[in-house]
Design a protein around this nucleic acid. Structure first.
Length: 908
RNA sequence: GCCGGGAUGGCGGAAUUGGCAGACGCAGUGGACUCAAAAUCCACCGCCCCUCAAGGGCGUGCGAGUUCGAGUCUCGCUCCCGGCACCA
């Protein structure tokens, strides 16, 4: 029933509410103010130190912003606002990684142009991001799908091409016959298409490749200079995968050891263990190795051919998945072990990959577990070359003296390697070499929604367009559907594909592949420096001023690909003289994922529901997904089901199913996802608690880098904090609180001391990105200010300034109500007096035998003697020292007193 | 299997160099205000024993060690999270 309050009551309520903390009113007000006044516009200013602070720009998905996004954005925003107040010239931009598969997939399903979908999604993202009060310079907003942007992506591709770093090659791609299209790696899950679950096979296609391997050594070496998380650097090192070893040449021979006469009758192997060459009892070629045909004997040809066909059809993933049991076929051919001079058989096996090393190995079953397994399976000889293991149990990979190894006998591994390499080089059998796991970057996608290549084919040969011919703009297409032949959608636009060479006027065909999504994000941080330049991708002076990015914050999922690709492009641009720093991102921080509570139960095939208490988890060997069965009857296999968070029924703090009040749900913290029903929408949080509360909560949750679960109830706690800040300054009637007085702070007052301590801590914590402890320090100060009868204005204002990077709307509002007419964004950061940030009287613990027994209050600078006297004077201490011998006194001024006493007599 | 990170109350987390474990917040309990509720404010809040109180014992995943003193350092385990995984 509706309640109709009488007008007086209504008036009363409204009057009181107006004076309350109402983020819904003050937040849009200040967002408008910042936008209208361009408060955060950044311009080159050589009188100020610069600070470039960058967020990994988002892909504007249809789902909109997620609470994970504002975590990193808030951290950078706090730092950006803090740095401005510290006198830095701050560049803090935001933009959109706007090419991408979901928009294209949506176009295939609905016919809506990806440009329209993307524009709509950007609209949403921009609104959501603005509603959080981030201090971006919106004049620098860019979008990778804008022709004015991708024109320069194409321009950089031309630079790569000029330097021979872009080339065409026939490489196997993920071809899905059922869908009639090529899939990106991320669209292939367990060898099946992500959509539909159809089979995916490898099919060679002509593709653009980028020669990132040419930069492998520099990409590796550059890591040492960077202030990045160690795990990210390690992941990049592993990805690059440098290994030192030798290339060794094996000549083909007859079974009796006579070498074949032809000059080119050989293959090279790569090994990290040249010292084990005497133990190489056979060789293995990758199934795709070009020499396989030639070496295979007529008797073996059918078997080898069948094996090759099968291996080639399998995807890399399928090949590794089935790899439990080694497979292979003898070619019937032989090669000469250069060390022993004996003929050893040559096999084909798919445990050797064509793409690594030379695509061929010498197999040392005594020193390599894979070779050992293979030798066991096929009855090949196993020779011990390094002592220390048991050849019946497995290969020995450790160090030890060499045996059965001719001139290496007795040497340890390190010495034997060097000795063998010297011997190989001396006799022309091989040389020292370095190999990388890193492979060249497959840069073509058979897709519509990406950057077209600035390449045309004249007389069937690729030719780069000239810079003045750019941009090559994406044409309109009839259909976004794949052509069915593996040709990209652009191939169907005849009027676009058939063109003329602008230089010669000869007929030409356009490249119809597009670039991958990584392309646009490889250099966006450079475009932010000079986003509206029509002549150049960026101005050289501006680049020198702003680069490098001082702090880059984003998710750890980009630890390898994006960050490696961007570094690669940057190093190329550096070699071109186009950028002034060898590395783009000086400091990197990964924010931890925010998890959501989800509530699970289980269902059998008949749709009967079960609580987790009746269910048993069966983890299957080697498989990611565990299975769930009924504990009472393990034959009943159960499926996991979730109840969306907002439908969970709570009784006595226990969650139950909404339609089945007896069914107890199992609370879990999981990655947020639609299917688990545990996604938290930032819009809803802003509507209820405001952006400042959302920002503060995200920071207060814990260390930035850490994974942590979202707890909406805790948001209310932070909201209460902000409300209390508000009511400390503003009375019920909307005036400034009378407790805030013009007095000078009394240096002896505990509030003054606490204030200085707080400013010190907040300053240090922001610098160290410990935002959660900075907020807790501000909370402590607020608690004390609330108890104070008089709050000196300088303290009140300093508090507002120190809080403002965290809660900028509230900060601005209070600043204004304190009588200031301009934004606080450029007010000097509050300072602290180190002398006042220390206590004069401290509480010192007194221990007896290391156990805390009393505390004493003494002057902070009390010396050892004073401390000891005070401690001995303490009544409790005396009772413990009564009748015992003090063996030792440990006194640390400012820290503690510890008496080491002998135990009382009586048998001990 | 290999590499990296971690384990602290009911929960998120805090703790300078080895020096008062549990700051701050959430949840909870009791109280004030209220016709009542919400909101707000005040107090309590690791576990156990004793209890009128005072007190005492235990306690930072497990087991050892170093030290006057260990969440922190060393050694050995267990479990969890992330990455890589036939890379020769």
């Amino acid at each position: 029933m509706d309640k109709h309050p009488n007008p007086a009551e209504q008036e009363h309520t409204r009057g009181r509410e107006r004076a309350r903390y109402r983020p819904q009113e003050i937040e849009p007000k200040w967002q408008r103010f910042w936008l209208e006044h361009k408060t955060f516009r950044a311009q080159v200013d050589h009188t100020k130190p610069k600070y470039y602070i960058l967020d990994m720009f988002p892909y504007p998905s249809a789902a909109g912003l997620h609470v994970g996004h504002p975590e990193g954005y808030t951290a950078t925003d706090i730092l950006a606002r803090y740095k401005r107040m510290r006198g830095f010239n701050v560049l803090h931009p935001m933009g959109w990684d706007a090419f991408g598969l979901p928009a294209e997939q949506y176009a295939i399903e609905t016919g809506t142009h990806p440009r329209i979908t993307t524009a709509r999604n950007i609209e949403t993202f921009r609104r959501q991001i603005r509603s959080l009060g981030f201090s971006y310079d919106w004049d620098r907003e860019i979008s990778t799908c804008d022709p004015e942007y991708y024109r320069w992506t194409q321009w950089i591709f031309l630079k790569l091409y000029e330097r021979g770093l872009a080339y065409l090659a026939d490489v196997p791609v993920n071809w899905c016959p059922a869908l009639g299209t090529v899939l990106a790696n991320e669209e292939v899950i367990d060898g099946k298409s992500e959509r539909g679950g159809y089979e995916v096979i490898r099919k060679p296609m002509r593709q653009w490749m980028l020669r990132i391997t040419a930069y492998a050594e520099r990409l590796l070496a550059g890591l040492d200079q960077l202030d990045w998380p160690e795990n990210v650097k390690e992941m990049q090192r592993n990805w690059i995968g440098r290994s030192e070893g030798a290339r060794i040449r094996f000549r083909l021979c007859h079974p009796d050891g006579t070498p074949l006469p032809e000059e080119d009758a050989f293959f090279d192997v790569f090994t990290t263990r040249p010292d084990t060459l005497f133990g190489a009892t056979y060789c293995v070629l990758a199934p795709e190795h070009p020499l396989v045909d030639r070496i295979t004997t007529p008797e073996q040809r059918a078997a080898v051919e069948a094996y090759r066909q099968e291996a080639m059809r399998k995807s890399d993933l399928a090949r590794t998945e089935l790899a439990r049991e080694k497979t292979g076929v003898n070619t019937g051919g032989y090669a000469l072990n250069p060390a022993t001079g004996r003929a050893i058989p040559v096999w084909v096996a798919d445990y050797v990959l064509l793409t690594y090393g030379t695509g061929a190995i010498m197999a040392v079953p005594g020193g390599d577990q894979r070779d050992w397994e293979f030798a066991r399976r096929f009855g090949l000889p196993i020779i011990e070359v390094v002592q220390g293991g048991d050849m019946d149990k497995g290969a020995y990979v450790g160090d030890g003296p060499h045996v059965n190894s001719g001139f290496l006998d007795g040497l340890n591994v390190e010495d034997a390697k060097n000795r063998m390499i010297a011997w190989l080089e001396e006799h022309g059998y091989g040389e020292r070499t370095v190999t990388y796991k890193l492979r060249d970057w497959l840069f073509s996608r058979q897709r519509y929604w990406g950057e077209p290549f600035p390449i045309i084919y004249v007389d069937g040969r690729p030719k780069p367009l000239r810079p003045e011919d750019l941009p090559v703009v994406l044409p309109e297409v009839e259909s976004f559907k794949p052509t069915g032949t593996g040709e990209p959608p652009l191939a169907a636009v005849t009027s676009w594909v058939e063109t003329v060479d602008p230089e010669t006027g000869k007929p030409a065909r356009r490249e119809t592949n597009t670039m991958p999504q990584w392309a646009g994000s490889c250099w966006y941080y450079l475009r932010f420096i000079d986003p509206h330049n029509h002549e150049r991708p960026w101005d050289a002076d501006k680049e020198r001023y702003w680069m490098p990015v001082d702090l880059y914050v984003g998710g750890v999922e980009h630890a390898v690909l994006h960050l490696l690709y961007a570094r690669f492009w940057h190093q190329v641009l550096y070699d071109c003289g186009l950028v002034s720093t060898p590395e783009p991102f000086q400091k990197l921080v990964n924010q931890g994922m925010i998890l959501g509570f989800s509530y699970r139960y289980y269902e059998d095939q008949q749709g009967r529901r079960y609580s987790y208490r009746e269910v048993q988890k069966v983890s299957q060997d080697g498989l990611e997904e565990p299975r769930y069965v009924l504990a009472a009857d393990p034959a009943v296999v159960l499926a996991v089901r979730y109840v969306p968070v907002d439908q969970v029924q709570w009784r006595d703090e226990v969650p139950y199913h909404p339609e089945d009040p007896q069914l107890e749900l199992e609370p879990q913290t999981d990655k947020m996802s639609k299917s688990r029903g545990n996604v938290v929408n930032p819009d809803a949080v802003v509507a209820e608690y405001g952006a400042d509360a959302l920002r503060c909560y995200e920071m207060f949750m814990g260390p930035l880098e850490q994974v942590k679960p979202w707890n909406t109830r805790s948001v209310a706690g932070v909201y209460r904090f902000l409300s209390r800040v508000w009511s400390l300054f503003i009375t019920d009637t909307g005036d400034l609180c009378p407790q805030i007085v013009a007095d000078d702070p009394d240096p002896q007052a505990s509030l003054t001391r606490l204030y200085h301590k707080t400013i010190k801590k907040v300053t240090e914590d922001i610098e160290g990105m410990r935002f959660h402890t900075a907020l807790s320090a501000l909370m402590v100060l607020l608690n004390e200010m609330q108890k104070a009868e008089r709050i000196p204005r300088t303290i009140a204002e300093g508090f507002v300034l120190a809080l403002s990077p965290f809660a900028p709307h509230l900060g601005e509002e209070l600043w204004q109500r304190l009588g200031h007419s301009d934004t606080l964004a450029y007010e000097p950061w509050p300072t602290y007096d180190p002398a006042l940030a220390r206590d004069t009287v401290v509480t010192i613990p007194v221990q007896i035998n290391g156990k805390l027994r009393a505390t004493i209050a003494v002057a902070a600078d009390a010396d050892e003697a004073t401390l000891l006297t005070a401690a001995r004077a303490n009544e409790k201490v005396q009772s413990y020292l009564q009748g015992r011998t003090v063996r030792r006194e440990i006194v640390i001024p400012g820290r503690l007193v510890n008496f080491v006493v002998a135990e009382e007599g009586g048998g001990r």
